[in-house]
């Protein structure tokens, strides 16, 4: 499974990188981005889901890896 941020939807609310700094980081404008390729392990899955559940813009998606 992979986590991605839809850059069109992200408005820089800042919730993901506060909740899960090991998975998300922020750029100079304060927008969130996924660190690395976003592949989730069983250990990081719950944290990614928690960040997703706190994004007011619904900009975080968890997808099947290809």
């Amino acid at each position: 499974m992979k986590v991605v941020i839809d850059a069109e939807l992200c408005q820089g609310q800042g919730r993901c990188f506060s909740i899960a700094p090991s998975i998300f980081d922020f750029d100079d404008l304060g927008s969130g981005f996924v660190i690395g390729d976003g592949t989730l392990s069983p250990e990081t899955m719950d944290l990614a889901r928690l960040a997703q559940a706190n994004c007011p813009e619904h900009a975080i998606f968890i997808e099947e890896s290809p």
Binding site: Q11, G12, Q13
Partner: peptide, 20 residues
């Protein structure tokens, strides 16, 4: 409250610049 998608800082393109 663990899941909290509140919108105190607005939604969309005008999201509060000062939220951090």
């Amino acid at each position: 409250r663990a899941e909290n998608r509140h919108v105190a800082f607005g939604l969309g393109i005008h999201r509060c610049v000062g939220s951090n």
